[in-house]
Simulated assay, not measured.
Amino acid sequence: MLWAVFTIIAAAAQTARNAMQRELTTKLGTAGATHVRFLFGFPFAVLFLIGTMVVTKLPPPSLATPTFWPWIVLGALSQIIATALMLSVMNRRSFVAATAYIKTEPVQVAIFGLVFLHDQIGAAAAVAIIVATAGVLIMSIKPAAADAARLGSTLLGLGAGAMFALSAIGYRGAILALAYPNFVVAATFALVVSLAMQAGTLTLFLALRDPFVLRRILRLWRPSMFAGFMGALGSAFWFLAFAITAASNVRTLATIEILFAQGISIIVFQQKPSIRDICGSIFVVFGVIMLIHNAH
């Protein structure tokens, strides 16, 4: 059950990072706020890798593993797109609603995992995924949600969920492709490589497209540093969980992020939950309990 502990820590760290990125979006724009998590997360990931190698006394995995690269590229690029879409939705809707849209991801992860990685899903786990996702849908679909703006937010949120799903599959595939004897070193190594690719890609993009944003990112280094640290911390535990179990299990348990988002929304953004949000949260919790019980 170590994967469950890793997932809960990752979900909590990601909620904190998302909240900080939401605030940075107003100052840096979507691309700038997206870049923050990768640029400032990379140094922390390197420190994590050095720490794991010192403790385990193992060398880093080889970069000359051909099957590693397609998976890590898929994971890294999908995550960039997913983060940008997520921040765009957060600008249009409440923090909780945006998180809810994205958490339709478990069903997509289960399908992608079965097709690309042959991760098997038991009947009980499939029911847990459906129940948790139903809770997400209860929170995200409103009866009076027929206007074009809300439809656009829904499509962006579902798109973000799909990209996060592909990202999860890419990262799990990359870690497994390394075939390294120590899963902690393998997961942390994959994290460092992905963040290096993401930070480099977005730095080049912004340098060519909008260098002013890069300067603003550096001026806002203090809040950006916190967002980067929480992003690297969350990602490190996501990767550790992916190294142990199927991505669908990890992403289903990750729906508890909705509950963390509710807390942030109430305390930080002063957004009160509706009855629909509370009912949806109950479904999410029930689905998570079913998943953990089945896994145990």
Rank of each mutant, 00 (worst) to 15 (best):
S62F: 10
A12V: 05
V284Y: 04
T203R: 01
A126W: 09
P60F: 09
Q262F: 00
R215E: 08
F239V: 13
L291H: 15
F48C: 08
G75M: 12
A227F: 04
L77I: 11
S274D: 03
L218P: 09
V107G: 15
P106A: 06
V127I: 08
G263Y: 02
F205W: 10
P106D: 11
A12R: 05
I244C: 07
L204V: 10
G231I: 00
Q120S: 10
M230A: 13
S235N: 07
F38E: 15
P223E: 04
G75K: 07
G263H: 00
L87Y: 10
T255Y: 04
V5K: 04
A19E: 15
A295L: 08
L74S: 02
L24A: 00
I289A: 15
S167E: 05
P66W: 14
L58E: 15
I130T: 12
G173S: 09
I282G: 12
A246V: 15
G280L: 12
V185A: 09
T104M: 00
V131N: 01
L137W: 12
K103Q: 08
I278G: 11
I275D: 00
H293Q: 13
N91R: 02
T154C: 11
T252L: 02
L85F: 04
T7V: 00
S62D: 14
F226Q: 11
S140V: 12
F183E: 10
I169T: 08
A179N: 15
V36A: 01
H293P: 01
L166K: 02
W3N: 03
L166H: 01
F189V: 03
A4Q: 05
T52K: 04
I129H: 01
L39C: 09
N182F: 07
V250Q: 06
N91S: 06
A187C: 00
P273N: 08
N18H: 11
S140T: 09
V185H: 07
M139T: 14
A33H: 08
G152T: 12
Q14L: 13
F95K: 12
L291F: 15
A31H: 10
I72S: 05
A31T: 12
V193L: 09
L206Y: 01
K272I: 04
S167P: 03
A148K: 06
A160S: 15
A149Y: 07
